[in-house]
Amino acid sequence: MPGLILLGASIYATVGTLFGAGFVLRGVERVDPAALGAPWTFRILILPGVIALWPLMAWRWWCAPRTRGAA
């Protein structure tokens, strides 16, 4: 059981990290236009939160309008 919890947490964090890398590079500007041209320090600063809340941010990215930002 603890092994399963740990495995689940590792998978969640790994997916979150992969997603997070893509999100802070491209998605963030689509979700929030105020992030257009934001410095890399800002992107690193929000990365832990994106990893923790990646399902939410993935959904926000999915729903974001496709005409602006990095697209």
Binding site: V28, D32, A34, A35, F42, L45, I46, G49, I51, A52
Partner: peptide, 15 residues
């Protein structure tokens, strides 16, 4: 505490 620290930037407040 991690969740709070990770979401402390104004980006999170807005989003």
């Amino acid at each position: 505490l991690f969740l709070m620290a990770a979401t402390s930037h104004d980006f999170w407040l807005k989003n």
